[in-house]
Amino acid sequence: MIVIGRGSVQQDECDVMGHMNVRHYVARVTDALAWLLLEGGLPPSRAGFAVQDQHIRFLREMSPGTPFTILGGLVAGDGPRARCFAEIRNSATGDAAATFVTDILCTAAVPRSAFARLRVEVPAHAAPRGLPFGPARPLPDRAAALAMGLAEAYRGAVRADECDRDGAMRPDGVIARVWDGVPNLRNRGTGLGVKEEGVGGAALEYRLLHLAPLRAGQLVTVTSGLRALGDKTSTWTHLLHDGETGAPVAAAEAVGVAFDLKARKAIAIPAAQRAALEALLVPGLGL
């Protein structure tokens, strides 16, 4: 792999849990993928790209001030389509903090020589565990999602400062909408992840699916449902819909854990909260 990004975690990139928020992982890797394409012969002056599908594993926390290096390469591709791999490593320890397998569509064909020169394999620690990463099935519109038992977690609009030079919402804006709505899910009788109680939440794995570009001013909702429940983990499916038409425009799935904010480790879901969560399970849900 080659170096495609460097930096350090900033205070304003961290959330109420005290570690770098998922949206900033996505933002940093999106920047890094542009450097990967430059190395492959597609500088920004010649071509842009859009993220279509992405699988993320979060392996270790990154707190404010943590220096990091992003390494990456090309896994596979043909013409303008490419599957990329990126790994964020703590520069001080060398440990992997997060991994990204990302399918992109470029506005120009990626040179064939790039796939040979920048070829990498996805390592075992980046492989899907709790979430599938294959072709997505057709997703319900907003009305159908609500009828299935999903709950509205977010309602808002796309802001111009969240969009790229072509006017499309950046990938970090999409995952930010999901995260923004999560506290509303906790208020459905679970009390899970309330910071004042010393228990928060942490993501272990994410899948982000982009179906149609979101534009400035476009109205958006997120409807969410609980797909699966483990001893420590909960798996949620989140569907983003166009507020005007109700059509699905993006989706996400996330595996998360209840998180002891003092010990900084995952804990088993308390019995009372488990009972509340079990009542929220939606049969047949998933991407």
Rank of each mutant, 00 (worst) to 15 (best):
G5T: 02
G7V: 02
S8F: 14
E13R: 03
V16G: 13
H19W: 08
H19L: 01
M20P: 00
R28Y: 05
A34F: 00
L37Y: 08
E39H: 14
L42E: 06
P44I: 04
S45R: 15
A47G: 08
F49S: 10
Q52I: 10
H55I: 09
R57V: 09
R57Y: 05
L59M: 14
R60T: 09
T66M: 14
P67V: 07
G72L: 03
V75E: 03
G79P: 01
G79V: 02
F85H: 13
R89H: 15
A92W: 05
A92Y: 03
V101T: 15
T102Y: 06
V110G: 05
A114R: 05
F115I: 03
A116W: 00
A116T: 12
L118N: 10
V120C: 11
H125M: 09
H125W: 12
H125N: 12
R129C: 11
P132L: 06
F133L: 05
P138K: 12
R142H: 12
L150D: 00
E152Y: 02
A153D: 10
Y154E: 12
R155Y: 01
A160K: 10
D161G: 06
E162W: 15
E162K: 03
C163S: 07
R165D: 14
D166V: 09
G167T: 09
A168V: 02
R170L: 14
V174F: 11
V174I: 14
I175S: 08
A176R: 13
R177T: 12
V178R: 02
V178H: 09
D180H: 12
G181S: 08
N187K: 14
T190D: 04
G201I: 09
L204S: 13
Y206K: 01
L209W: 07
L209S: 01
P213R: 05
P213Y: 04
L214P: 00
L214A: 15
R215Q: 11
Q218K: 08
A228M: 12
G230I: 07
D231H: 13
T237G: 00
H238Y: 01
L240K: 06
D242C: 10
D242M: 12
V249H: 02
G256Y: 01
G256V: 10
F259E: 05
A263T: 07
A263C: 06
K265M: 13
I267Y: 04
I267N: 04
R274D: 00
E278H: 03
L280Q: 13
L281R: 11
L285F: 01
